[in-house]
């Protein structure tokens, strides 16, 4: 009896400001979903699937970039602002390497598959090397400095990379060759989806599944997870911390480099300063899914991509950015650990 009374008191007291805020948040989400649904029904299925396809493709690229943010954050708790620029560098570098693989803007057909594969490998390798150099030069010496010091060097590195690309190719949009098939795939019932989008999504998924297997199965993956949880303990277990951190930067940047090529192939245009804003979106995706959580980053990327596409397609482009960052704040207030993040006790 006494326990029942206690329990009732418990529920009464939890009905405080927090639950009211939660209620308001729930209502806001519901209203947004209803408003979107209404417009979706007005505009018909074809448009919806086009938008969805675009959103998923864009989300796949966000996800690839978000993985690098989330892995680096998970292991050294640094928001690596240079990551978005490593991603753009991937697009720039691959553009410059194309002649080496006999690719030119007029190439098309099945003949591009093999050279493209080579292009992916060399770009991913290049971005990875750039990123581990950045870590080596700008972050590692500051591992025991005040926490904000590496953040400032990250911003500095971001500016440096943007500057290098700016000097190299100027500030304007560069045309990126269009190798992907243009046709629409029919899903039946008159509903179609762009083949390009499907290609992007599948490619990104392959990379992400590969990464997940690597982190869960390989020895290095285990070392990464151990280091992320407790660096000191991992060190005592004989894990080489420096090598593990380098490997994290390596993998993150390889994915970002691949993302850069996919970005170029999908949008057919890239500019030196694209990466920063794109990086912020990807970072939002990482937080959305739960920072430090690999599947979370992938999920977050797809969701942010779709939400952005829906906002662009059914509402106005001008408000998409505030919407995305509004969602970021919203998620952090109502579910601070993100969608898939684990609860970390404060003490």
């Amino acid at each position: 009896m006494a326990e029942t009374v206690q329990r009732l008191r418990g529920t009464f007291f939890t009905l405080n400001v927090n639950s009211l805020l939660n209620l308001a948040g729930g209502i806001a989400v519901l209203v947004a979903i209803i408003a979107t649904l209404q417009r979706v029904f007005e505009s018909g299925g074809t448009y919806f699937f086009q938008t969805l396809g675009f959103g998923l493709a864009q989300g796949a690229i966000f996800a690839l970039v978000a993985l690098g943010y989330t892995m680096v954050y998970g292991i050294i708790e640094l928001i690596n602002f240079a990551h978005g620029d490593v991603f753009t560098l991937g697009a720039f570098f691959s553009l410059a390497m194309m002649p080496l693989f006999g690719l030119n803007p007029s190439s098309s057909g099945a003949g591009v598959i093999l050279p493209l594969l080579g292009l992916f490998v060399i770009t991913m390798l290049f971005c990875a090397l750039v990123n581990i150099t950045i870590e080596r030069v700008a972050y590692r010496p500051l591992r025991h400095a005040p926490r904000l010091a590496p953040l400032i060097t990250a911003i500095g590195m971001s500016s440096l990379l943007e500057g290098v690309m700016f000097i190299w190719r100027g500030p304007f949009n560069l045309a990126y060759p269009d190798f992907l098939p243009e046709q629409q795939l029919s899903l039946g019932g008159g509903i179609t989806i762009a083949a390009k989008a499907v290609f992007v999504i599948i490619l990104a998924l392959i990379l992400m599944v590969g990464l997940t297997f690597f982190i869960n199965r390989s020895k290095l993956g285990k070392a990464m997870r151990a280091t992320a949880q407790d660096r000191d303990a991992a060190q005592l277990m004989g894990i080489n911390i420096n090598r593990t951190i380098s490997a994290t930067f390596f993998i993150g940047a390889a994915l970002a480099g691949a993302g850069g090529i996919i970005y170029g192939l999908y949008y057919n245009s890239v500019a030196a300063f694209d990466g920063f804003a794109y990086g912020l979106y990807a970072f939002t995706a990482a937080v959305f899914g739960g920072i430090g959580n690999v599947p979370g980053a992938a999920l977050g990327g797809f969701m942010i991509g779709v939400i952005a596409a829906m906002s662009d397609g059914y509402f106005t482009v001008a408000w998409t950015r505030p919407l995305i960052f509004g969602i970021l704040i919203f998620v952090l207030v109502f579910r601070p650990t993100g969608l898939l993040g684990m609860r970390v006790p404060e003490k």
Partner: peptide, 15 residues
């Protein structure tokens, strides 16, 4: 080169 210079200054002073 101003972006490069700015970046180098930030990284340099911090290091």
């Amino acid at each position: 080169s101003k972006y490069v210079i700015f970046g180098l200054i930030l990284v340099g002073i911090m290091l």
